[in-house]
């Protein structure tokens, strides 16, 4: 997505929504900074530029809905639980970590939220969960976040087939940021997400807007239909501002610039400067303080490792 998709003025958000957007933004920026300083182990995938997707979806999903996230899932988690402490502790391997520091950035399970690090793997699992929900908890859905690159995996198609065939309450959210790691979508996808969904008789809904209010309004009815057993693919044409993981961005300067031009953060600051500046500094300082507090905690503990010591 190199063109600017949406030049309209962004509508004004409630403070709560803006705070959540800013929390995710500053959380991700903080992670890159911590990595840069060598304070984090392994790797991470930030959702810079894509924060508005889970924020827009948040009120459309209930606490009983299952959410399956992927490798780029910090925003998904924060939008569901608003728990930067637990997530950062997980990523840093500190006490209070959501999963004891075992799963890390890509493998998180809490209540009905689960993320895994293998592309497309969650789709059949979510279909199984949706099958259970259709029978046992009518009106509840399973939501899976995938990317444009995920459409290279056969598991996606096997699961879409089942979802359509069995009329499963499955919501597939595609964050099409135009690039799979380093490979542009144009170099890895023939046809389109829309035509692939159509091939299975699954409804496809394209979102080009970055306006949270507008997105929510447009998705209310299609998401309600999912609950009644009409699976749906919602494709967000979005932009990955940052690198795939850390320091591995080889995109040409104009592609990065295009992503920046579409960034809700800059646009919202221009469109609603008073509200933005009132909250931005506060949230940034809050994330700063959280990072300091988490870094000072002792290492996380894993119950399995204590059983090895006992044996």
């Amino acid at each position: 997505m190199t063109e600017i998709l949406d030049r309209l003025r962004l509508s004004r958000l409630g403070d709560d929504d803006l705070e959540l957007l800013l929390l995710i933004r500053h959380f991700e920026l903080k992670l890159l900074e911590l990595y840069g300083r060598g304070d984090l182990n392994g790797t991470t995938h930030t959702c810079l530029g894509q924060e508005y997707v889970p924020v827009a979806l948040a009120p459309l999903l209930g606490e009983h809905d299952h959410v399956f996230s992927n490798h780029r899932g910090h925003g998904h988690y924060l939008a569901r639980f608003r728990d930067p402490h637990g997530l950062l502790a997980e990523i840093m391997g500190r006490q209070g970590a959501v999963c004891g520091g075992v799963g890390g950035s890509q493998h998180i399970h809490r209540d009905r939220y689960m993320s895994t690090g293998v592309q497309g793997e969650s789709m059949p699992v979510a279909a199984g969960v949706a099958l259970h929900l259709r029978r046992a908890e009518s009106g509840v859905l399973a939501c899976v976040y995938i990317g444009d690159g995920t459409w290279g995996e056969g598991a996606v198609y096997e699961a879409l087939n089942l979802a359509s065939l069995w009329r499963l309450p499955l919501l597939v959210v595609v964050e099409n940021n135009g690039i799979a790691q380093s490979t542009p979508t144009t170099a890895q996808m023939a046809g389109s997400v829309a035509s692939r969904a159509a091939a299975f008789g699954v409804t496809h809904h394209l979102v080009v807007s970055t306006d949270v209010n507008e997105i929510r309004t447009s998705l209310e009815e299609p998401v309600a239909a999912v609950r009644a057993g009409r699976p749906l693919v919602v494709e967000f044409a979005t932009h990955r501002l940052g690198p795939h993981s850390k320091g591995d961005d080889i995109r040409p300067a104009d592609a990065v610039q295009a992503a920046r031009d579409n960034d809700w953060y800059v646009r919202y600051a221009n469109d609603h400067p008073d509200q933005f500046h009132r909250l931005d500094g506060t949230i940034r300082a809050r994330v700063e303080a959280i990072a300091e507090e988490i870094a000072a905690r002792p290492p996380s503990r894993w119950e399995a490792s204590s059983s090895w010591e006992a044996s």
Binding site: M114, P124, A126, A127, G128, L131, L133, A159, N161
Partner: peptide, 12 residues
Amino acid sequence: ALTGVAAGLALT
């Protein structure tokens, strides 16, 4: 997919 569905059923 059928193994994944089984896992999803087990998960719930």
